[in-house]
Design a protein around this nucleic acid. Structure first.
Length: 267
DNA sequence: ATGCCTTTCCCAGAAAGA
């Protein structure tokens, strides 16, 4: 399919610090030309996002930042209105008084989109694990109306859950770990049950993965995970023309440990 | 991979990531 056939290109990318990744992000925006981009782990304060630099490429920015940790954003060059920060019913950690910057939603032209950075969970016996499950429950409630809407909608980002054993390089290596437990996968299934479908990218070079640890040459050894997901409602799913993982963005100097997931829509 | 990198806080090493 040629670029001319694509009316709207959307993407999600955990950049692991938007400031550390700024040169690569700018290059990637110019080379890839997405219309809407959901970012995770911006790791900058609310007012420290490099908005001027992305505005030069035609993007408006919605950012929910808290500084050193977390932080999510939506970039759009097809409009950015009705921006909503955070999540009603967010459990917070350790409680609602300390909520983290993990989701932002916006309307971009004909689409409603939500960027999410789901809590890691740390380990199944850690309080952060229950927080992760509760957070996913709150997300389910927050997206139910958009999922049922005739307007195309996608919630996309770093879900920190591998949906199946095929989404990790070695299931045996994850026994007893987070990201693969039945409770986490059930929470994703519950999320899909409100009317969302996992837009699984085309397998490229034999790999379905979107994340590879920085250490021990994990990327070159194919030791990855598919944890960056695009969950689409029926209206958006019906116009998907292609979905793919930009492995090139994981190569070279100073990459994020995540690759972007790109979805082309014939809206 | 039980942290073999990377980033942030800020200038030393802790915290966090998955």
């Amino acid at each position: 399919m040629s670029r001319d056939d694509v009316l709207v290109r959307i993407a999600t990318w955990n950049v692991n610090s938007v400031l550390a990744r700024q040169p690569r992000l700018i290059d990637w925006l110019g080379a890839t030309g997405p219309d809407v981009v959901c970012l995770q782990e911006t790791k900058v304060a609310a007012d420290a996002f490099p908005a001027v630099e992305v505005a030069a490429l035609g993007y408006a920015v919605g950012h929910h930042g808290e500084g050193r940790w977390n932080g999510v954003a939506i970039l759009s060059r097809i409009g950015l209105v009705d921006v909503v920060l955070g999540l009603p019913g967010d459990p917070g950690f350790p409680g609602p008084a300390t909520r983290e910057a993990r989701t932002i939603a916006a309307t971009c032209g004909p689409l409603r989109v939500r960027s999410v950075y789901v809590p890691n969970g740390r380990s199944p016996d850690d309080p952060h694990y229950e927080y992760k499950l509760a957070w996913l429950g709150a997300l389910r409630a927050a997206v139910a109306d958009d999922a049922a809407s005739p307007r195309p909608f996608a919630v996309m980002g770093d879900f920190n859950v591998a949906p199946t054993d095929d989404d990790v390089w070695d299931p045996a290596a994850f026994v007893g770990a987070t990201h693969v437990t039945s409770a986490e996968r059930s929470a994703l299934a519950d999320l899909r049950a409100v009317g969302l479908t996992d837009v699984v990218p085309t397998i490229s070079k034999g790999s379905p993965y979107t994340y590879w640890d920085y250490r021990a040459g994990s990327f070159h050894k194919g030791m990855g995970m598919r944890i960056d997901l695009v969950y689409a409602n029926a209206a958006l799913l019906s116009v998907v023309e292609a979905a793919w993982i930009d492995r090139e963005a994981r190569k070279g100097t100073g990459p994020s440990d995540h690759a972007p997931v790109v979805v082309d829509l014939g809206v």
